[in-house]
Structures are given as C-alpha cells and as structure tokens.
Nucleic acid binder design. Structure first.
Length: 200
DNA sequence: CGGGTTTGACCCGCGC
DNA sequence: GCGCGGGTCAAACCCG
C-alpha cells in the first residue's frame, strides 16, 4: 500500500461514496466552484504531475501524505480506509492523531485569496508557521456536524500567487451551495416530469 | 448571542 | 532521551 503512487492511480480524485460528494473536477469545464476563486488552476500540470514550479508543493505534499509515497505536485491518497466517525478517537489535546489513513487530496490554485470557495463551510481551527515557508499554514474543518473533513491551506513561498490546498477526508453530506443552486432546477425538472408528455 | 477567528499552549511523532 | 516541527485544542476575542 505504501508503494502506491497516487498520481498513477486511476482513481483520481478519490471515488465518491455518495452522489453528493464533491471533489475538484477533472476538468475546468466541470468546475462546480466559484470561478472567481479558481480562475487559474493548472489542472494539466496537477493531474499530469509534470508541473515544474512545485518545489514547495512537493515538500508539502510529502508531508501531507503519511506514506510519503510520491514527490509530485498532486497527492491523492486513497487507500480505501474510511474512518469518518471518530477516526481520531485516541487523539488528545494537541496531539498528533494516530496515523490516520484517510483520503488526502491536494491541489494548487493561482489566487489572490487563500480561501477558495468550494461550496462547503469551513471553520478555521488553527494556524501554524511552517519551516521553509514565510507563509503560515491554516487549518480548517468542515462545519457540518457529521463531517470531519479537514483541509490545510498554505501559500507557496516560491510562488506567492499559488495556494496549495490539502483536503483530508470525504464529505458525507451534500454541498450546501451546490444544493442551493440545484434545488430549484431539480424541482423544475421534477415538475416537468409530472406533466403529460402531450403538454411537453 | 451564536458562530467564526486568533493565538498561545499543549501533545506527539520522528530524527538524531 | 531530547529537541524540533507540525497538528490540535481551547480560551479569548471579534463580528454580524
């Protein structure tokens, strides 16, 4: 398992346990996120692992991955272990949790804002200055009660326009913003589907 | 007043 | 064993 290279994994991004699950899309066209925050994602480089400006990212992602299996721009660790409920039970205050093997997914965006709007609500629970970086790393948790997805956000010191976001875990609830957008459409579709075909 | 942010302290894994 | 670095907690603070 440790030898798995996420970049070469066919499951990128990690498979969704539910239809509501949202991870970064495979192409900008399908991007469900607010475009003002994701206007310049280098998806090609990210998913091909050929980006040449990611020295910082490499270090970050090697750190982000508990298995440190790859030194590439994008890490998507998905070894299938779902520990959404009380996964960090043994964790104590401030303590590093036991080596959790939750799915991790990191990517970088070119943005002036550190926080990109991915449709979910996040609460910041910590910020740390990290070695070899002039920018601090911010820690966020999903505010949904039953969801313990976390993410880390850090700006690259070598390319200050780049922001690296590392997701950990999988949302087990719908994306609120997406649902807000889709609900009227779905209602309309549902309504139309009830009409006799002759009317349509 | 409730929810989010800030920030110093605490804890723990890891390398030496 | 010790120190460093990183992840988390939680009280204080802020804001709508």
């Amino acid at each position: 398992m440790e030898s798995q290279d996420p970049l070469n994994s066919p499951n990128l991004p990690p498979p969704s346990p539910s239809p509501s699950f949202l991870f970064p899309p495979m192409s900008p066209v399908q991007n469900p996120w607010d475009s003002r925050d994701l206007h310049d994602i280098d998806w090609v480089s990210l998913f091909s692992g050929q980006s040449n400006m990611l020295e910082d990212t490499k270090a970050m992602m090697e750190h982000a991955s508990s298995s440190s299996s790859s030194s590439s721009a994008l890490m998507a660790e998905n070894n299938g272990t779902q520990m959404d409920e009380k996964s960090n039970k043994e964790k104590r205050k401030g303590g590093r949790s036991k080596k959790t093997t939750r799915p991790r997914f990191a990517f970088q965006t070119r943005s002036v804002d550190d926080i990109l709007d991915d449709g979910y609500r996040w609460r910041k629970y910590g910020q740390k200055s990290v070695k070899n970086s002039i920018y601090p790393r911010s820690y966020y948790r999903c505010t949904h009660h039953t969801c313990n997805v976390k993410k880390q956000v850090q700006r690259l010191s070598k390319d200050t326009s780049m922001v690296v976001t590392t997701y950990e875990g999988i949302h087990n609830h719908p994306c609120e913003k997406l649902m807000e957008t889709l609900t009227p459409l779905l209602n309309q579709i549902q309504f139309l589907s009830t009409l006799p075909s002759t009317i349509i």
